[in-house]
Simulated scan of single mutants.
Amino acid sequence: MSNSESKMKINGRFDIFTEGLQILWYESMELEIIPLHVIESGSPGPIETIGKYTSKTDSHYYFYEAILEHPENSVIRIDYNERPKEWEGMEWQIEFGSTEIRLDKNGEPSSVFWKGNDSNTVELERNKDWIYVRSQEPFGRVKISRSVLNRPDQSALRKILISEVGQCLLTGCDLHACLDAAHIVPVKSGGRDSTSNTILLRSDMHRLFDAGLLCLKFSHEGLEIMAAECVRHYVLEQMKNYNPCSYAARHAEALNERYEKYPRAAELHRLVFNR
């Protein structure tokens, strides 16, 4: 289905620029996004999906912690057993049950069912209750993530980070249009689409971080920030008035995993050391 066809035929609450399986619940007031890597890998175990509830006056973003099972080659089942942590203080109640996704020969969803704990099974209607978005372009994930700069409300994960943190980890920039949700452990390598695996970076810092020209890691004494010689002076200039330790510590494990396992510049210079 092309984007032009989608705009004409599908419910306007879907986001055709966000990859993954999107399901509308509760009379189209809640949009759930099951990330693309969850569908494509089908690996059993804990996962997180993104929820967005839209009322007449506001939108709320949150994460469902769920369990993915793969009972058959062409079937994925997602079991919901916990309230999202972001619902604390709200009267909302989760409806326990499971979403069953049946896949076609290409590994893409062909039908979606909801199975409640009351044993009732409901088939959801494609283009009305659910859509599947997957870029056909090479390096589609990168192209889509860059469109955040043009569409600030596109990414639920990014919006949660802006709400929680509000500024770039390294530069302190709080201009929301310039901020990206940067994955620490890459999603293609099994990293989660969750706040525990993302930091908020200004777009230029994000590009350097992804390219391995800018690295962060923790030792027993604190945070180390390192950059390749070709960008060292630039990064120092951008960071001169900001202390990044204020919220970086909660990502210590993921940042160290990235530093040890994933490509980076051959020679890095330590820039900042905060006790």
Rank of each mutant, 00 (worst) to 15 (best):
R126Q: 13
I76E: 06
S43Y: 02
A182S: 10
T54A: 12
E91Q: 11
L169W: 06
R158W: 02
P109K: 05
L149N: 09
M90K: 12
E48A: 06
V231C: 14
I131F: 04
L24P: 09
G107V: 05
L124C: 06
L201E: 01
K85A: 08
R141A: 01
Y80L: 13
N120F: 07
D118F: 07
N150E: 13
R83P: 10
E82F: 13
G140Q: 00
L208D: 12
L201F: 05
E48V: 07
K217N: 14
I162K: 11
L68K: 07
Q136G: 12
H220L: 10
S55L: 09
A228V: 05
N127E: 15
A177N: 09
S203M: 06
K105L: 04
E65Q: 12
I47T: 04
S246Y: 15
T49S: 10
I50S: 08
E237K: 10
G89M: 02
E48M: 13
H269F: 12
H251A: 06
L255T: 08
S43H: 07
C215H: 02
K115F: 04
L169M: 15
V235M: 09
D118E: 15
F63E: 08
H206V: 07
M1S: 12
G107I: 02
H206N: 04
H183M: 00
N81R: 14
G190S: 11
N241M: 14
A182E: 01
E108T: 08
L68A: 06
S6C: 12
M29F: 05
R102D: 10
M1R: 09
I184H: 04
P35E: 02
E91P: 02
F139Q: 00
A181V: 03
D193N: 03
N117Y: 04
A66I: 02
E137H: 07
I23P: 05
S196Q: 13
H176L: 00
G116F: 10
S4R: 13
D58F: 10
V133Q: 06
I16E: 00
E32S: 03
K188P: 02
M1T: 12
G89R: 04
L201V: 06
K7W: 14
T54K: 11
N11A: 01
S41D: 06
S145R: 00
C245N: 15
L36D: 00
D210W: 03
D104T: 04
W25N: 10
L213Q: 10
N256M: 08
L157Q: 00
N3E: 14
Q136I: 10
C168G: 08
N117L: 03
G190F: 05
E65W: 09
G20W: 01
D15F: 04
I50E: 00
A228H: 08
V165G: 02
R77Q: 14
L216E: 04
I94K: 07
T198H: 03
P71W: 09
S194R: 08
